[in-house]
Amino acid sequence: MTDHAHDLRAVREATDRLLSATRKLNDEDLARPSRLPGWSRGHVVAHLSRNADALVNVLQGRPMYADSETRERDIERGAPRPKAEQLADLADSAARFADTASAPADWSRTVTLRNGVTDSASRIPFRRRVEVELHHVDLGIGYELEDLPDEFVTREIDFLTERFAGHSDVVSTEVVADDGRSWSTGGGAEGAPVVVRGSAGELLGWLCGRRDGSALTVDGGPLPALPPL
C-alpha cells in the first residue's frame, strides 16, 4: 500500500539534495546541455519547477497543464533565466507542492494527470519524487543512478516493469538484479522470452530510457527495445 506521508518526506529529502547540488552551479553551467536531448540544464530546472505547480493543480482538482503548448512554452521561457531566479523558482514551487500535499485530504481519491491518465492521489508524492530524482541525474552534475536510494530504485523498477507488462511491442522478459531480485514484464509481442540481468542501477537506466542497456547481459535473444515513456 502506498504511504503518501513517507513519500512526501522522501520528496523533501530528494529536493534538498537537488537544491544543494544546483546551488553550486553558475549561469554558464545552467546554460550547458543536460543529458536530455535538446534540453539545457536550465530546461530541466524550469521543467521541475513547473511540474511541481502542475501537481499542485492535480491535487486541487484542476487540469495538470492548460495544454501541451503552454507547458512547453513555460519551460522554454524559464530555461534561460539566471541562476538566482531559477533556484528561487525551484525552491518556491517545491514548497507550494509540499504545502498542498501536506494538507488533510482524501488520499484514496482518483486524480487526473496529463493525457487523461488517472491515478490515486496517494501516488502523487511518489510521482513527484520520480521527477526530482531522475531529473537530478539528467542534469549531469555528479548525481548518478547508482546514487539513488535503493528503496526508490526498487519501487521505480516495480512501476516500470508493471507499465510494460503485456505490452504489444515487448516480448516476455524477466528482469533480474545482481542481488537476486527479479521482475517480469512484456509478454505481448511474439518471440522467445528473454532474461535481462544487471545491477539495479543499470536495469533502472534501461527501463527509464537513461541508459542503452549495453552494460546488461541478455539470455534468449536481443535486448528488448522498450517503448517511450
Rank of each mutant, 00 (worst) to 15 (best):
A91E: 12
E85Q: 12
L145E: 09
R62S: 09
R9T: 08
L203C: 07
S108T: 10
R9V: 12
G186D: 02
I157D: 02
Q60G: 13
S93C: 11
T15M: 03
A52Q: 03
H135T: 04
Q60A: 13
S68V: 15
S102H: 01
E146I: 08
A165D: 14
R23Y: 10
T15D: 15
S199R: 03
L36K: 13
G42D: 10
N26W: 08
G42M: 09
N115L: 03
L30R: 15
P228A: 11
L30A: 14
L8P: 09
E28L: 15
A215W: 06
R9Q: 13
L87F: 01
P227F: 00
D16F: 14
L229P: 00
S168I: 12
R163C: 13
R181M: 11
I75V: 13
D53G: 12
A95P: 00
T2P: 12
G38N: 11
H43S: 04
D219N: 09
E76M: 06
G188D: 05
R211C: 08
S168T: 15
R50L: 09
P80K: 01
P80T: 07
T15I: 10
R129D: 11
L204R: 00
L90Y: 08
E162I: 02
T217C: 05
G142H: 02
E202Y: 06
L55E: 14
A79D: 04
P125I: 06
R163E: 13
E133S: 00
W206S: 10
M64I: 09
G61F: 06
D179T: 00
A46K: 10
M64P: 04
M64N: 07
W183S: 06
V111N: 10
G201I: 11
E144F: 07
A189L: 00
S108N: 11
A215H: 07
A91H: 09
D119T: 15
W183T: 00
G38E: 10
R96P: 10
H43K: 07
T112Y: 03
P224F: 06
H47T: 01
R127M: 15
A79M: 03
P82G: 05
S49Y: 11
V137L: 05
R197Y: 09
G221N: 03
S49V: 00
S40C: 00
R129M: 09
E156L: 02
N57A: 01
S34G: 04
R128W: 09
L8G: 03
D29I: 08
P33S: 14
P82R: 04
D92H: 10
V196W: 10
P80G: 13
P63V: 07
F126T: 06
I124L: 12
V176I: 13
R123T: 09
T185I: 02
P224I: 06
D212C: 07
K24H: 03
S93I: 03
L216M: 06
S68G: 12
N57I: 14
W107D: 13
T70Q: 10
V171M: 03
A10Y: 03
N57Y: 02
W183R: 02
G209M: 02
P33L: 12
V56L: 03
G38Y: 04
W107T: 01
R163D: 15
I75G: 07
D158Q: 01
K83P: 12
